[in-house]
Each structure stands twice: as C-alpha cells, then as structure tokens.
C-alpha cells in the first residue's frame, strides 16, 4: 500500500525543480505543514513566502510575483483557495493570465469530520468557469509528479487539487503524460466510468467488481477537467452503452456536468453521474463517507449495474 501522498509528490518535484530555477517561489497561508511543503520552506527560505492566514492576500501576492517573472505555487486548503480567494483568482490570476499554479490541498472531503467549512465540493465548478483557468485533479503520486513537471514548464494559470491521504498507485515512474489529455485505463463495451482525482482507484476497483458480474466496464482517468479531453469521452460513448462519471464534488458543475455537456453536444448518451450529494456532507473518514453515498468501489459498481440492467 502506497504511503506517499500526492501533496508530498508535489513537494518532491518542487524541491528538484528549485535546484536549478531561482524563479520558483512557493507561497503558503500558514499551511506549509498541511501542504507537505515544510521541506521546501526549510531548504529554499528565499524562495518561500509565508503569507499567514490570508488566502486573498496569498493569491494577489502570488500574481504580483508572477507578473515580475516568478513561477509561483500558491498552496492553501482547496476549500479556502477556491472560494474565499475566488475574486483574486478570477482577476489577478485568470484574467491577468499570471504564471501561478494554485495548489488546493486537502481537496474534496479530505478533512472528513471537520465539516462543511473545510470541504471543497465546488472547486471544479468555480475554477472551470473562469476563462484562462485550467483545472487538474491528478489521481496518484506518479501522475501528480508528471503534472507538476509539465505545469512548471509552461507559463499559464492552473488549479491543481490534491487530497490529504495517500492514494493507491495506478501508474509508475514510466508514465507517459500529456497535459490536457486523459488516461484510458481500460475499455469496455458495456460501460465506461470516467473518474477524476482520488476517485480513480475506486472506479478501477468498481470495474473489477463489474467484471466478476459479467459486465465489461472501462475506466478513464480524467485528470484534466478543463480543458476536458472530449475526444476520449466521445470515443468511449461510441463504444459503450453507458457512460458513468465519478467525482468527489457537488453534482453541479463538476465532471458529470462537463461530460454531460460534451455528450449532449456531440453524442447523446445515457449518463450516470456519481457525485457527492447537494447537501451537507455526513461526518466521517472519506472512505466511510464514500460508502455512505454509494461512491466507493462497491457503490459505483452497484449503480452502474443497476443503470445497465435495472437491477
């Protein structure tokens, strides 16, 4: 079982990149520990800025640094980064096209029993609605590393959401990665489950469960939410009887909505959208919560089977 979290994978990449690039600057809002960025702050104190508990300031300062040639990573809990500083993200990063990677840590319901204040179930919808903003939810540590390497090579705004706990490995170091695409893990004529972020391992397990029940389901790891890899979605839709989406997000404006938009425009198809409910999320560890809402592997498999067979 992998113990390395995606946030640690981010820190490792930044540590390596900063060796040869003085322009990489990391900002935290009293969040260096929860972002796993303490090693970076210790090794590169001149390339690290502590902003204190002030997420709006975090994002605007990041934009100012970027406007003067810095490649900035602004890290803060996804809940606060995506909504409290939304105005600053909209104006100073997206509209101004500054070279800032917004790193939303402890995304989705990572904080579990801390409650609604700390959940970020709106971030895909909010960030994807901003022109010039790209949205990524990597699945495992290898993909997270490749994603960060790729984002450090370009100079455009991006939002990256990672979770708090370690995700199961899906790939390895040899992963062939391209920005703004998706990874097809498997193909299935009966159903294709399109998942993002740390729901991908659940989707992969669901496909295995379905296989045992005689249902051939494929899985797409849609790590890039915007721009969405529509080609992959449409290819799957032409091949599969059912498209399902699985995401740790509100049912509005997330992966399900984006996939539905692509399908309805180009290849109308029955869609099963699996997401968090539009309501206050029950307290608990994320595994418990996913099971409660039918979003764990068993839940996803059961809902896909039900959608296909009626039972």
């Amino acid at each position: 079982m992998n113990k390395v979290t995606n946030r640690q994978a981010v820190c490792d990449i930044l540590m390596t990149a900063a060796l040869n690039d003085r322009n990489i600057v990391v900002l935290c809002s009293d969040s260096r520990g929860s972002a796993s960025l303490k090693p970076f702050a210790e090794q590169y104190p001149e390339q690290f800025v502590e902003v204190g508990i002030a997420e709006q300031n975090l994002v605007s300062i990041a934009a100012g640094l970027a406007a003067c040639g810095k490649k900035v990573i602004a890290a803060s809990p996804a809940s606060f980064l995506s909504t409290r500083s939304y105005e600053q993200v909209k104006i100073d990063v997206a509209y101004s096209r500054t070279n800032v990677i917004l790193l939303g840590i402890s995304g989705g319901i990572s904080y579990g029993a801390l409650g609604m204040t700390h959940h970020s179930a709106q971030d895909i919808a909010a960030l994807a609605a901003l022109p010039d903003m790209r949205v990524y939810l990597p699945s495992d540590r290898f993909q997270t590393a490749k994603l960060m390497e790729a984002l450090l090579r370009d100079e455009k705004p991006a939002y990256v959401r990672v979770s708090r706990s370690a995700a199961e490995d899906i790939y390895d170091e040899n992963l062939d990665f391209e920005l703004d695409r998706s990874h097809i893990l498997s193909e299935g004529p009966d159903a294709t489950i399109v998942a993002c972020g740390e729901m991908v391992p659940y989707a992969a397990k669901a496909a295995e469960i379905l296989k045992e029940a005689g249902i051939r389901a494929g899985v797409i790891d849609m790590y890039c939410l915007k721009p969405l890899d529509e080609k992959a979605v449409l290819k799957a839709a032409r091949r599969s009887r059912l498209i399902a989406t699985a995401e740790e997000h509100s049912p509005y404006g997330g992966l399900g909505s984006l996939v539905a938009q692509a399908l309805s425009a180009h290849c109308p198809k029955k869609l099963l959208a699996i997401a968090l409910p539009d309501g206050h999320i029950i307290a608990g560890e994320n595994k418990e919560v996913f099971a409660h809402y039918g979003m764990d592997a068993e839940g996803i498999a059961a809902r896909v089977k039900q959608a296909l067979t009626g039972v």
Binding site: I61, A62, G64
Partner: peptide, 14 residues
C-alpha cells in the same frame, strides 16, 4: 496593495 507586495517581494528576491 497585495499585488504590489508580490511585485516588491520579487524585486527584493532578485
């Protein structure tokens, strides 16, 4: 002011 802080910090760093 906040954007200006970023720009001023960049000057100091460089």
């Amino acid at each position: 002011i906040s954007v200006g802080v970023g720009m001023a910090l960049a000057a100091k760093m460089d």
